[in-house]
Write a protein that binds this DNA or RNA. Structure first.
Lengths: 260, 260
DNA sequence: GTATGATTAAAACGACTGTTTGAATCGTTT
DNA sequence: AAACGATTCAAACAGTCGTTTTAATCATAC
C-alpha cells in the first residue's frame, strides 16, 4: 500500500493532503460537521497524523484558512496598490476599488486549485455558528478591510463614512451569499442548477455581481428618509446633513451619481 | 418545582417552551451545535419531552422554522398584494416590491417576540452545511419567491429575467449577511458593536439596506461587458441583445434608470 | 373511588466525537 | 550495520450525541 501511494498521491506530503481533505470536507459539511476521522480517511492518512501535524482540530482549521487566506488577501492588496499607482496622484475610482476586492475574490474562486471550494468555505465562515471561526477569519482580514475601507473613504469623500461601512458590509453579504448559497438560487431560478455549473464563480456571475455591487454602492443616500425620532444616534455617528425634502434631488444624490 | 413553574413560565405549555428554547439555541450555536439536552434544559423540560412532542430533532427543527416562517411569508404576500391593489391596474414599482419582501422581513426582525432571533437563524440557514435545513427553508418559501419573482418581472419588463433572478439572489445575500454576520461588521466599523445594539435590525439598518438593495437592483446592465467567448450559454439563457459598445449609454441603461 | 390516556421522569442504549497513548515503522546520519 | 529522530499505526480514552425504554405521574372521565 505504501508503494502505491507514491504515484497516486500528487502531493505525497501528509500535511498538504490533510489540508486539502479538510478544506473540501469543511466546505461541504461545515467545520463542525466534518470529523477528524473523515478528514484522515479522505487524505489517506491516519487519524493520529492530524494531531501530530496540527495539534488539534482548531489548529487544522487555522491552517486550512491561513493557507489560502494569506494568498487571497495579498492578491487583494496587490490589485488595490496597482490601481492606486495607476491613478496617482489621484484616487482610484470606486469601481476599481470594488474590482480590487470583490473582483479579485471572484477570480480567486475561479482558479484551478480548489479556489472555488475554499471560497465557499470562506463565505460560510462569516456566519458560522462557532465563534472561533467567525472571529478568526475576521481578524485575519482586518488589515485588508482597513485599507479598502480607507480607499473607499478617499474615493467617495462626499459620502458619510458610516454609510460606506454599511454598504461594504452589504456588498460582502451579496458576494458571500452568491458563493455559498446555492439551494436558494435553485428555487429562485426554478431550475436544477447542478453544483458543477456553479462551482466557483464563472465569468457570468462575476460580471453580474460586480454590476450589482457597484449599483448598490452608488445608490442615493437614504438620509432624508431616516425617521425623525431615531432611537439612538451612536451607531449613526452624528448625521451631518440633518434633513432634506424627500422627493427633491439633493446634492449628495448628484455627487454619488457622478462618482463613477 | 411544579408549582413554581406556573408563574415563572409565561407559556406553560411544554411544546411552546421547547420551540422558544430551540429557536434561541439554534440561532446562537447553529442547529448542529445545539443539543437536545441543552434545549430541554433551557426550556425547563425533560429530554424525552422533545422526542415525545416532536418525534426527532429534525421534527423539532421543522416546527421551529414553520412556526415563524409561515407568519413571515404570509406577511410578505399580504404586503405585496396591498401594493398590487394600490397600483391596479398598473404594476407596483420596484421599490414597493422590495419593501414588500425585504422591508417586511426587516420589520419582522424588529418585532418584540423573538423576531430578531429567528431572522438571524433564518439568515444563517440559507448557507447551513446541513442539506436538510437549506432545502427545507428553500422549499418552504418557494411559493413566495415565485410570486415576488414574477412581480419583479412585470415591474421591470425591459430587464432580462435572468438578470432579475440573479439580482434577487444578491439582494437576499445582502440582507441575510446584514442580519446574521455581526463579527465582520465589528471589524469593518472598527468598534465594539454589542450584540444588543444590532439585535434584530433597527430602523437605521432597514433604511440603509433598502437604499442599497434598490441601487443594486437598478444598476446598469452589464451585458455589454460579458466576455465574447462565454464558456456556456445555458445559465445565461440566450442573451437577447448580442453586444453593444461598452462606454455608450445604451437603451437598457436608460430603461433601468427610469424604472423607479 | 378507580380506570384511562396523556405527559413527564430517570436511566440506559449504541454510535460518534476529539484526543491521547505506546509501539511499530520510516528515512537519514553516523 | 547501528542508531537516531521523524512519522505512522492501531487501539483505547472519556465525553457527548440522538434516541429509546420503562416506570412514574398527571389530569380527567366514569
Amino acid at each position: 500500500m505504501r508503494a502505491a501511494t507514491d504515484f497516486e498521491m500528487d502531493l505525497s506530503q501528509t500535511p498538504a493532503r490533510l489540508l486539502d481533505a479538510a478544506e473540501s470536507l469543511f466546505a461541504e459539511h461545515g467545520v463542525d460537521g466534518a470529523s477528524m476521522r473523515q478528514i484522515a480517511h479522505k487524505a489517506g492518512a491516519n487519524l493520529a497524523a492530524c494531531h501530530y501535524h496540527f495539534g488539534s482540530k482548531e489548529g487544522l482549521v487555522r491552517a486550512v484558512f491561513q493557507r489560502r487566506l494569506s494568498e487571497l488577501n495579498a492578491a487583494r492588496l496587490a490589485a488595490l496598490s496597482a490601481y492606486e499607482a495607476q491613478a496617482h496622484p489621484q484616487t482610484p475610482k470606486p469601481h476599481q476599488i470594488l474590482d480590487a476586492f470583490f473582483g479579485t475574490s471572484l477570480r480567486f474562486a475561479r482558479q484551478d486549485s480548489g479556489g472555488a471550494v475554499f471560497m465557499r468555505l470562506l463565505s460560510r465562515s462569516a456566519t458560522d455558528p462557532v465563534f472561533f471561526i467567525r472571529n478568526f477569519v475576521a481578524q485575519e482580514s482586518e488589515g485588508v478591510i482597513f485599507r479598502f475601507k480607507n480607499a473607499l473613504f478617499n474615493s467617495l469623500p462626499e459620502v458619510p463614512q458610516d454609510e460606506i461601512v454599511w454598504r461594504f458590509h452589504f456588498m460582502l453579504g451579496a458576494m458571500s451569499y452568491a458563493l455559498a448559497g446555492i439551494d436558494v438560487l435553485k428555487v429562485l431560478a426554478h431550475i436544477d442548477v447542478t453544483p458543477s455549473e456553479l462551482e466557483g464563480a464563472d465569468e457570468v456571475l462575476q460580471v453580474r455581481l460586480m454590476a450589482f455591487l457597484l449599483g448598490g454602492l452608488r445608490a442615493p443616500l437614504p438620509e432624508a428618509e431616516l425617521p425623525v425620532l431615531a432611537k439612538r444616534t451612536r451607531t449613526v455617528a452624528a448625521a451631518k446633513g440633518k434633513s432634506a425634502p424627500r422627493n427633491s434631488t439633493n446634492k449628495r444624490k448628484a455627487d454619488l451619481a457622478a462618482a463613477k
